[in-house]
Amino acid sequence: MDQNRQGARASYVALSVFVALWILAPSAVRRFNREAFVEFQAPALHLLGKSRDLATFWEKKSRSVEEMAAAGRDLARVNAALEIQINKYEDIRRENVRLREITHYNVPAEYMSVVARVATRDSSSWWQRIVIRKGRKDGIRPGAPVVFGNTVVGRVTAVHLTTSEVDLVTSPGFRCTAYLEGDEQNNIVLVNGVASNSLGTAKARVSVIPRDYSLLAGGQPTRVFTTGMGGVFPSRLILGYIDGGTYATQVGNFKESLLVPSRDLYNLQEVSVLVPLHQNPGEALIQGEDFQ
């Protein structure tokens, strides 16, 4: 017993020494430690995602042939309609390129799109964060926007070898500019996530709304679009909708409102990461590159 006590005391002393060392250790050590544990877990997360896919696969497999045939028929119809649209867009695209060339308009930032499956989301809704199954080796870089269709999911905050963490639109670390639907003067407003404290769904805040801006008539939800001005997000992506119920709280000399994300961010299965072809200054800052 005594021996055990003494051992315990020695252990506490050792622990305090270790804590002291830990605090004094360069942050690289701690970062490495963290990275190591992330990578340790990565296979499990991948496995988890894959098993989910497998479950879906078997679920599909159990459908009857008739059902599949019906679904195939529907898809064929949708395909045909989309085909026509693609042709139309192709014409528009060519026209667009031609006009840009005439007016010497700057080509907007170009992106490389990486499709990724969602592995898990952070179980705490304090930090609206998901983990996707693509990482450094797939060319993902921090700061890249993450979208689903034409809606914004969030931004990549940390990249590991085979997984990446994505801050959702509703995360406090998320900030971007936006236009409001129906605002003819195109005033830019600020969108950033808020920590959800109450036990409800997380929302983001839309602030710096001009005081005389009024919602769309007829109570239809007002969409919030990206501006495409900041060099991170492409323009005209949907960030979400203005929450009608809490609209128009005056804050300072502006108005403020809550943003409801347009997709249910809790049911995401797959997202696209838009990795910019050229590194922008913000990314360089995140990575702490030296500059004069």
């Binding site: 500019t177 830019i188 600020l190 501006t227 001005m229 900041g230 060099g231 997000f233 200054p281 800052l285």
Partner: peptide, 22 residues
């Protein structure tokens, strides 16, 4: 507008540098 948007979207949110509107 671009200059404003670039700061908002690219500058790190955390830290001692704040964005202020008036």
């Amino acid at each position: 507008t671009k200059s404003v948007a670039r700061f908002i979207e690219q500058f790190p949110v955390e830290g001692p540098i704040r964005l202020d509107q008036d």
